[in-house]
Design a protein around this nucleic acid. Structure first.
Lengths: 205, 205
DNA sequence: GTTGTGTTTACAGGAAGTTAACATGGACAC
DNA sequence: GTGTCCATGTTAACTTCCTGTAAACACAAC
């Protein structure tokens, strides 16, 4: 569900692995279940804080759990959700946490006749909505966040497709083509998503 | 493989030699295998950190190794890769580490009516952007980084074209000509990219 | 199965890099 | 001064590599 929404998600099968991954990947947010094999959610919180990780932590708890919510927050968690919960609620909490931590100054991008509303995940061209698949949208976001900078295919792959995912570099090309088809005034003469021959691509707002 | 990618690589046959070389050469990145003759990867990490070397360290571990990844990270390693891994993955990790550590300081060069913005990879003359191919741009960077120094064709070939790549030395000439055409007030009377007859070239800002 | 999405493959066209050939001009000896 | 030699400048052809595009394939969700 989170990936559908454009988040990059890493998962861990137990508490110990989760703790390691959190330290290593330094994600924007950690979601922890209270009941875990290997290490309880509580312990993870404590340890992550002890390791000086500033990442916000969202705790999931089952309805039967007898938990001291205050203790949880004191220990380093930033929010908790009690099962059962809907995906909409979880999403809202996640967005709220992320917003609280990094106030995300810009929520709407503009260039040419295109408008991108990050919060609503909507791209409009001349006022009309344009559909974007998850990877197209992620690629677009990466360009928007790095205007003017030359971006090599490797940088794009790392940031958009992720650390551990390794498709062919030509995959980037094809998605750039798709962005151009959807957003360029003349897709054959790119104005915003330009090619740097021998280097990569560059977004010029 | 790394040399192919433009990195300069030093190797060591055992842990002790690697430790000494790392201290001596102060490289941008250290790659250590966990199982080493002479000194284990763990010990190297610890010692390098104890010696106040800020260099990022990437650890390679065999799949069978029972390693405490957290301990590894706490001891001073910055990332680890478990064998078997592909060269693309290794490369990506290396690039990510280098990027994380040195955020690429803002650098802008000036000379005459020319301005070079390294981060944006943009060269402007009288405020107008001038296009540069990869090798032209690399050559320009090399001149910018070595002002006033006489540079022989061999030095230029080594640094710009790379260690193991040896095209005709005349290739340098032609690229110098192109720089002049694009950046000199009068390309026939070089002012910035001057010829040292019998020696090579020199950049005078 | 069908649909939508993502990835890989194949190939054409074009950009960039290299080489060769010739022209030019400086260094040096006389 | 003058002539020769050799280094450098210049042009154009050649080669190599990169990118855009279409189409096939893989895969998951429905």
């Amino acid at each position: 569900m989170l990936e559908q929404e454009g988040f990059r998600v890493h998962m861990a099968a137990d508490g110990r692995e989760g703790y390691e991954k959190a330290l290593l990947l330094k994600p924007d947010l950690v979601i922890v279940d209270l009941r875990l094999p290997g290490m309880t959610g509580m312990e993870i919180c404590k340890q992550l804080r002890a390791s000086n990780l500033p990442t916000p932590i969202l705790v999931l708890s089952a309805v039967g759990d007898e938990i001291d919510k205050v203790l949880l927050l004191e220990i380093g968690a930033d929010d908790y959700v009690t099962k059962p919960f809907g995906s909409r609620e979880l999403l809202a909490r996640i967005r709220a946490l992320l917003r609280r931590v990094s106030p995300e100054g810009k929520k709407v991008y503009h260039f040419g006749d295109v408008e991108v509303d990050v919060e609503r995940r909507v791209v409009e061209r001349k006022g009309e909505a344009v559909k974007f698949t998850p990877s197209e949208y992620n690629l677009l976001m990466y360009f928007l966040q790095n205007p003017d900078k030359p971006l090599t295919r490797d940088m794009i792959l790392n940031s958009v497709w992720g650390y551990d995912h390794y498709p062919n570099t030509r995959t980037v090309d094809i998605h750039v083509v798709k962005l151009r088809q959807k957003l360029e005034p003349d897709p054959n003469v790119p104005r915003y998503f330009t090619t740097l021959h021998g280097v990569g691509y560059r977004f010029l707002p």
